[in-house]
Amino acid sequence: MSTLTYPEVGATRLGPLPDGYDHLRHRAAVGRGRTDFEAAGAAVTEWRMHRAAGARVNASAERAAAGVAVEVSAGLGRLRVEAPCEVVWTAYERDRTGFAYGTRAGHPECGEESFVVELTEDGTVWFSVVAFSRPASWYARLAGPLVPLAQRWYARRLGNVLRRTVSAA
């Protein structure tokens, strides 16, 4: 029995994104070539990208796989927000690597978010975040339009962190 808090499981992979949610699409070039692609894919699927961006990640596995429980938290002290999730799909393909997680009970939002690295024919390594979400907690509703702004900021931050991670590899 699923503990996910939304019915549109997998929509970040197959689309279209469902109505009734805020949508986020962010794409950034993070490297070039197979070596950068492999480094970026490993950083994404082994939680290192999130950790390097300042989030705490507690996962039931060291690598993303369907069904893995993940709790991501951010903030300081008592102001830390915990976000329980579950990996709903993964991609471990020749030129595409990544995963999506969906929200579980206790998450301040309701929805799904994917993190995918892709190697295109011209050799560019692209990082994409696709998400749909809506408030599920009183404090997310209270924050109103600030939540999508914070999500966009975090997606850009992840891209920047991943670019730096790849260049250091």
Score class of each variant (00 low, 15 high):
Met49Phe: 07
His50Pro: 04
Ala53Glu: 07
Asn58Lys: 11
Ala59Arg: 02
Ala59Asp: 09
Ala59Gln: 10
Ser60Gly: 15
Ala61Asp: 15
Ala65Ser: 12
Ala66Phe: 11
Gly67Glu: 03
Gly67Ser: 10
Val70Cys: 11
Glu71Ile: 07
Val72Trp: 12
Leu76Asn: 04
Leu76Met: 07
Leu76Ile: 10
Gly77Thr: 05
Gly77Leu: 12
Arg78Lys: 15
Leu79Asp: 12
Val81Thr: 08
Glu82Ile: 04
Glu82Phe: 13
Ala83Leu: 03
Pro84Asn: 12
Pro84Cys: 13
Cys85Pro: 00
Trp89Thr: 00
Thr90Gln: 02
Thr90Val: 15
Ala91Ile: 03
Arg94Pro: 12
Asp95Ser: 14
Arg96Asn: 07
Thr97Asp: 02
Thr97Tyr: 05
Thr97Ile: 13
Gly98Lys: 00
Gly102Val: 03
Gly102Ala: 04
Ala105Pro: 05
Gly106Met: 03
His107Thr: 08
His107Gln: 14
Glu109Val: 11
Cys110Lys: 10
Gly111Pro: 01
Glu112Met: 00
Glu112Val: 01
Glu112Ile: 00
Glu113Lys: 01
Glu113Ser: 01
Glu113Thr: 06
Ser114Met: 04
Val117Trp: 08
Glu118Gly: 06
Leu119Tyr: 07
Thr120Val: 14
Asp122Phe: 08
Gly123Tyr: 06
Gly123Cys: 08
Val125Phe: 04
Val125Asn: 02
Phe127Lys: 01
Phe127Leu: 01
Val129Leu: 00
Val130His: 01
Ser133Gln: 10
Ser133Asp: 09
Ser133Thr: 15
Ser137Glu: 03
Ser137Lys: 12
Ala140Glu: 11
Ala140Gly: 14
Arg141Gly: 15
Arg141Tyr: 13
Leu142Asn: 09
Leu142Thr: 12
Gly144Leu: 14
Pro145Met: 06
Pro145Tyr: 07
Leu146His: 08
Leu149Val: 13
Arg152Asp: 12
Ala155Ile: 08
Arg156Lys: 15
Arg157Glu: 07
